[in-house]
Amino acid sequence: KRPMNAFMVWSKIERRKIMEQSPDMHNAEISKRLGKRWKMLKDSEKIPFIREAERLRLKHMADYPDYK
Results as ranks from 00 to 15, higher is better:
K1W: 12
K1V: 11
K1E: 15
K1F: 14
R2S: 13
R2N: 14
R2T: 15
R2Q: 13
R2Y: 15
P3N: 15
P3M: 03
M4G: 08
M4T: 10
M4D: 13
N5G: 06
N5A: 05
N5R: 01
N5T: 14
A6R: 02
A6E: 07
A6G: 12
F7D: 01
F7Q: 05
F7V: 00
M8V: 10
M8D: 15
M8R: 08
M8G: 11
M8S: 13
S11I: 00
S11V: 04
S11Y: 08
K12Q: 12
K12Y: 05
K12S: 13
I13R: 05
E14W: 02
E14K: 00
E14F: 03
E14M: 07
E14D: 01
E14A: 03
R15H: 05
R15D: 00
R15P: 00
R15T: 11
R15M: 10
R16E: 13
R16Q: 15
K17G: 02
K17I: 06
K17M: 04
K17P: 04
K17V: 04
I18S: 02
I18D: 02
I18Y: 07
I18T: 01
I18N: 03
I18A: 05
I18R: 00
I18C: 02
M19P: 02
M19T: 11
M19F: 07
E20I: 04
E20Q: 01
E20R: 03
E20Y: 01
E20F: 05
Q21L: 07
Q21H: 09
Q21R: 08
S22C: 11
S22D: 13
S22W: 12
S22G: 04
S22I: 04
S22A: 11
S22K: 07
P23R: 02
P23M: 01
P23L: 07
P23Y: 03
D24V: 03
D24Y: 07
D24N: 10
D24P: 01
D24K: 04
M25K: 04
M25E: 02
M25C: 07
M25P: 00
M25Q: 01
M25G: 02
H26T: 15
H26D: 15
H26V: 07
N27S: 13
N27I: 06
N27Q: 15
N27W: 14
A28F: 05
A28L: 09
E29P: 01
E29Y: 00
E29T: 02
E29D: 11
E29C: 02
E29K: 07
E29N: 02
I30W: 03
S31G: 08
K32Q: 11
K32D: 13
K32S: 08
R33V: 15
R33L: 15
R33F: 12
R33W: 14
L34S: 02
L34N: 01
L34C: 05
G35I: 14
G35F: 11
G35Q: 15
G35D: 15
K36G: 09
K36F: 10
R37T: 15
R37V: 08
R37M: 11
W38N: 00
W38T: 00
W38P: 00
W38L: 00
W38Y: 03
W38D: 03
W38K: 06
W38M: 02
K39R: 10
K39Q: 13
M40C: 09
M40Y: 06
M40S: 13
M40Q: 15
L41R: 02
L41I: 03
L41F: 01
L41H: 00
L41Q: 02
K42P: 13
K42S: 13
K42V: 06
D43E: 10
D43H: 10
D43S: 07
D43Y: 09
D43N: 09
S44P: 02
S44W: 12
E45V: 06
E45K: 03
E45D: 12
K46F: 00
K46T: 03
K46I: 04
I47G: 08
I47R: 09
I47P: 00
I47T: 12
P48S: 03
I50Q: 12
I50P: 03
I50L: 10
I50W: 05
I50S: 05
I50G: 04
I50K: 09
R51A: 11
R51W: 11
R51H: 07
R51K: 12
R51P: 05
R51S: 05
R51F: 06
E52R: 02
A53E: 03
A53G: 00
A53N: 05
E54T: 03
E54F: 02
E54A: 06
E54G: 02
E54P: 00
E54K: 01
E54R: 02
E54V: 03
E54I: 02
R55S: 10
R55G: 07
R55C: 06
R55E: 12
R55Q: 12
R55H: 09
L56K: 03
L56D: 08
L56G: 06
L56I: 09
R57W: 10
R57P: 06
L58V: 11
L58H: 13
L58T: 12
L58I: 11
K59A: 13
H60V: 12
H60L: 08
H60M: 10
M61S: 13
M61N: 14
M61R: 13
M61W: 09
A62H: 08
A62D: 13
A62M: 09
A62I: 09
A62W: 06
A62C: 11
P65Q: 15
P65T: 05
P65R: 05
P65L: 10
D66H: 10
D66T: 03
D66R: 06
D66M: 00
Y67M: 15
Y67P: 14
Y67I: 12
Y67K: 12
Y67N: 15
Y67S: 14
Y67A: 14
K68R: 05
K68V: 06
K68L: 03
